[in-house]
Computed example of a mutant assay.
Amino acid sequence: MHPSEISPRMGATPPPEPDQGARDLRDEVVALARSLPGGLRRLTVRNGDRAIEVEWATDAPGTGSSAPGAPAPAVSAASDDRPDAGAEAAEAAGAVRSPLVGTFYAAPSPGADPFVRVGDEVEPGQTVGIVEAMKLMNPILADEAGVVAEVLVGDAESVEYDQVLMRLRPTGRAR
């Protein structure tokens, strides 16, 4: 949009045209989004101190389909020789994974209560932790409802991309 296309208002100044750097960044982000495997759930770009966050869409449970090159779904220990291993795997509702490399924090601030504990029920979209990356605090959200069965990382522990942070089991099941 060119400034001459904006209707004049008293006291209002037209928005500045994006500079070449912003246009280049936008073009790069669009190219990145088109080249990524699988369906995107969220793509966030910040221009100040430049950060890009990518979150992939999760397949519906039981579909077994995923795009080639997409992050692999969690693999359970059902191949274990224990007789109850299959039952434990069947109870697993899902895994909460780190969407990026950084430092995991279980609580919003030092000394505060953790976002969730083992046994807590969570709802989709509920914050279950934070991963700090490049001085940005990124909330980790539950993708599905469940009960926290296991927290696999400690507070202030380094985590890798796609690392399982915690496991959820379906609500209403015996522990």
Score class of each variant (00 low, 15 high):
His2Leu: 11
His2Pro: 05
Pro3Asn: 11
Glu5Arg: 14
Ile6Val: 15
Ser7Cys: 09
Pro8Asn: 03
Arg9Ala: 12
Met10Ile: 14
Ala12Thr: 09
Pro14Thr: 14
Pro15His: 13
Glu17Ile: 15
Gln20Tyr: 12
Gly21Glu: 15
Arg23Asp: 14
Asp24His: 13
Leu25Trp: 09
Asp27Glu: 14
Glu28Cys: 15
Val29Phe: 05
Val30Gly: 02
Val30Pro: 00
Leu32Phe: 02
Ala33His: 09
Arg34Ile: 01
Arg34Pro: 02
Ser35Ala: 15
Gly39Met: 04
Arg42Val: 07
Arg42Asp: 06
Arg42Thr: 10
Arg42Gln: 09
Thr44His: 07
Val45Leu: 13
Gly48Tyr: 13
Gly48Leu: 15
Asp49Arg: 11
Arg50Ser: 12
Ala51Arg: 08
Ala51His: 02
Trp56Pro: 11
Trp56Cys: 06
Thr63Gln: 04
Gly64Ala: 13
Gly64Ser: 14
Ser66Asn: 00
Ala70Cys: 05
Pro71Asn: 05
Pro71Gly: 02
Ala72Gly: 07
Pro73Thr: 12
Val75Cys: 01
Ser76Thr: 15
Ala77Val: 05
Ala78Gly: 05
Ala78Gln: 08
Asp81Asn: 05
Ala85Ser: 15
Ala85Asp: 09
Gly86Lys: 10
Ala87Tyr: 00
Ala87Glu: 01
Glu88Gly: 03
Ala89Val: 10
Ala90Ser: 03
Gly94Asp: 06
Gly94Arg: 03
Arg97Tyr: 03
Pro99Arg: 06
Leu100Glu: 00
Val101Pro: 01
Val101Asn: 00
Val101Gly: 00
Gly102Arg: 08
Thr103Gln: 09
Phe104Lys: 07
Pro110Trp: 02
Pro110Asn: 04
Asp113Thr: 09
Asp113His: 06
Asp113Glu: 15
Pro114Ala: 03
Phe115Ser: 06
Phe115Glu: 05
Val116Thr: 07
Val116Gly: 05
Arg117Glu: 10
Arg117Tyr: 01
Val118Met: 02
Asp120Gly: 08
Val122Pro: 11
Val122His: 06
Pro124Ser: 11
Pro124Arg: 07
Gly125Glu: 06
Gln126Ile: 08
Thr127Leu: 02
Thr127Phe: 00
Ile130Tyr: 03
Ile130Phe: 00
Ala133Asn: 04
Lys135Arg: 11
Leu136Gln: 02
Leu136Ile: 13
Ile140Asn: 01
Ile140Glu: 00
Ile140Met: 07
Leu141Lys: 07
Asp143Phe: 08
Asp143Ala: 14
Ala145Ile: 10
Ala145His: 05
Gly146Cys: 02
Val147Arg: 12
Ala149Val: 01
Glu150His: 03
Leu152Gly: 04
Gly154Ser: 10
Ser158Trp: 01
Ser158Thr: 09
Val159Thr: 02
Val159His: 01
Glu160Gln: 14
Asp162Ala: 12
Gln163Pro: 11
Arg167Glu: 04
Arg169Thr: 13
Pro170His: 08
Pro170Val: 14
Arg173Lys: 12
Arg173Thr: 15
Arg175Cys: 00
Arg175Ile: 00
